Simulated assay, not measured.
Amino acid sequence: MNPRATEETPVSHPSRPLGVGHLTALGLAPPALVTTAAEAGFDSVGLRVLTGNGTERRWPVDVGSPMLLETVRRLEDTGVSVLDVEIVALKPGTAPADYEQALEVGVRLGARFLNVMCDDPDLDRASDTFAGVVERARIYGIRPAIEPMAYKRVSSLSQAAGIARRSDGGGVLLDSLHLRRCGETLDDVRALDPDLLTYVQISDAPRRLPRLDRPAEPLPREQVCGDDPAQVESLTARLPAGDGELGLRELLDVLPPDLAVSVEAPNLELIGSLGPRRFLRRHRDAARALLHSGTPGRRSA
């Protein structure tokens, strides 16, 4: 069984590898993200090789493309690895042709996970579709993980876990912001089958959802952003670890100590003022401080 932290022995994991998700700086092309992440001190990246809708502009990282070849070269030069590729959106008509490209690109990048979200109102059908994604991804050595999000059809850990359990090997992706906005608690996280856990994305935020308006300017790569404040916050206004009230240390303490951690924290104002390099470095320093912090905890066998 994976160890969990409870309340007596200090737990700190300063050497745990740390990644950064592409959404944090989606305006950087994949090769530039790899280089900038390496300069900032990250160990891995997540790369957005597909989009969840028809409006967002994809980075041209098709198999055999110059951009994919350059991305692979920079991964080799820097030693940065690829934690995950994204994003597959489960919809009523989703078919293998809709996600095969992500798997083909992912295996060339050495990705471990495939990020999946759900836009299908029929969760039974979504479960069947996800099981198909898992079966196909096994050929590529990639593990799909479904992510609960407050403004998507799968908006709870229990829904995500139910879909993952019905597949043969799929998992659940945790995101600190989405957990809070979905109304999940640490007890809900503790209750999740450890075998379903894949990795955790971290960012910080106020405890209560702030009032946020959709930005007047287009988002990077022309992402779709509605008027739902939870979506606006998720895409434009996340905070570095420690700058909010989400209890990130407590969250990490109830997760297996070897679970991969990745920063997913887009903030349009902050990246605009700091520039991508300083922005990623700030996130890296904040996340490393969090991993070094350690709070009292007792591990259960």
Rank of each mutant, 00 (worst) to 15 (best):
G169L: 05
D227Q: 15
F130K: 08
L173Y: 04
D188A: 15
Q201V: 03
P218Y: 10
L123E: 06
R125L: 15
E135C: 08
D193K: 03
R238S: 04
V200D: 01
P144W: 01
A191K: 06
I139T: 11
A150L: 01
V154K: 00
E147R: 07
F130M: 07
R190A: 04
P229D: 07
G183K: 13
P218A: 10
A205L: 08
L179C: 07
P148N: 08
P194D: 07
I163G: 01
R238I: 04
S155Y: 06
A164N: 05
D204W: 02
R221Q: 15
K152Q: 12
V232K: 00
R166C: 06
S176P: 00
A126I: 06
P220G: 07
I142M: 02
V200M: 08
L197F: 14
L197M: 14
D175E: 13
I142A: 00
G141M: 03
D228L: 11
I142R: 01
G183W: 12
I202L: 15
T185W: 11
A237Q: 09
D175V: 08
A237W: 10
L212P: 04
D124A: 14
T129V: 15
V232H: 07
H178I: 13
A191D: 13
D204M: 08
Q231V: 08
G171T: 02
E184R: 02
R180I: 13
E135Y: 04
F130P: 01
S167E: 09
L197A: 12
S234F: 13
A205S: 15
F130S: 04
E222G: 07
P229V: 12
Y140K: 04
R211S: 07
L212D: 09
E233D: 12
G183R: 12
Q201Y: 04
Q231K: 06
